[in-house]
Amino acid sequence: MTATSSSSPARRRGFQAERFDFSSFFFSGLTGLATVLILAILVAILLNIVLNGWDGLSWRFISTIPRKDFFDPDTTGILPMIIGTTIRVFVMTLFVIPVGVITAIYLTEYASHTSPLTRIIRGAVNNLAGVPSIVFGLFGAGFFINFVGRNLDAVLQSAKPTWGQPALVWASLTLAVMTLPVVIVATEESLRAIPMGLREASLALGATKLETILKIVLPQALPGIMTGGILAVSRAAGEVAPILFTGVAYYMASLPTRLTDPFMDLGYHVYVLSTQSPNIEKTRPILYATVLVLLVLTFALNFVAILIRARVRKRLRALH
């Protein structure tokens, strides 16, 4: 081995940086800035709505059924819109959750991963997720109303068109079709998270595959299914384009009572208030108040369901 050099390079200099790395500093800063900007946009929107909408909000506002003039802050109310939105979303879940969960069960528990059919189904689900909401509206009008509804009227021999026109049920079905991918994806994820060992144990005890799925797997997957339901509900509550031609009404004197009734809607009302008001300054407070209610409803629906999900999780954990 060579004799040591009197000063090996390491001793000569410490580990200081030779010069300041400007470009790394600058670009890292840029990315941080971008993140902050996005968050700022989020906060700006939320603050703007809350601050402006808070004053216009009142118990009277929420509980009144308005007369035809929406734009007078003193007499108007949004009760039918709140109810309309809530009902349509509720009816939607009746359709979307069973279909979505069953499809997810098929994809996770029964389908072969490599078969082309599975890939087509998955492709269809992904594609469905990307269809523009207005196209769903057209689909709802063209298929549900004009085809299913009209034929239903013919079969039932209705005196006047009841099913073949914009109605609550068709709007809900349209939304169900739109949010199907959300439920499927969330359910699939939760099914996949369940270890195979659980299923094996059940089969080893003599249960059938179906029993295993229904009694062991599904209950474990419940929180995930609820997440899917929440996301679907939250998304559907805020969507206006799909219901434009399938059921929303500009004005209804009374609350919707049957599936075949049209309904009023919060989001649509926001649209009406912002674009058709004769005096935007006067309408501003009710516009913001309505937006605030819509936002609260979307987030509150979210929140309530998250609570349910947490509680279900706790209960399921206690079972183990």
């Binding site: 390079p9 390491a10 001793r11 410490g14 580990f15 200081q16 940086a17 030779e18 790395d21």
Partner: peptide, 20 residues
């Protein structure tokens, strides 16, 4: 310490360290 310098010292740049 590497070469007598504490590598966690205040003026040490970890990137420079890793280059050596």
């Amino acid at each position: 310490k590497i070469g007598g310098h504490d590598i966690h010292g205040p003026d040490v740049d970890a990137i420079e360290l890793r280059k050596r």
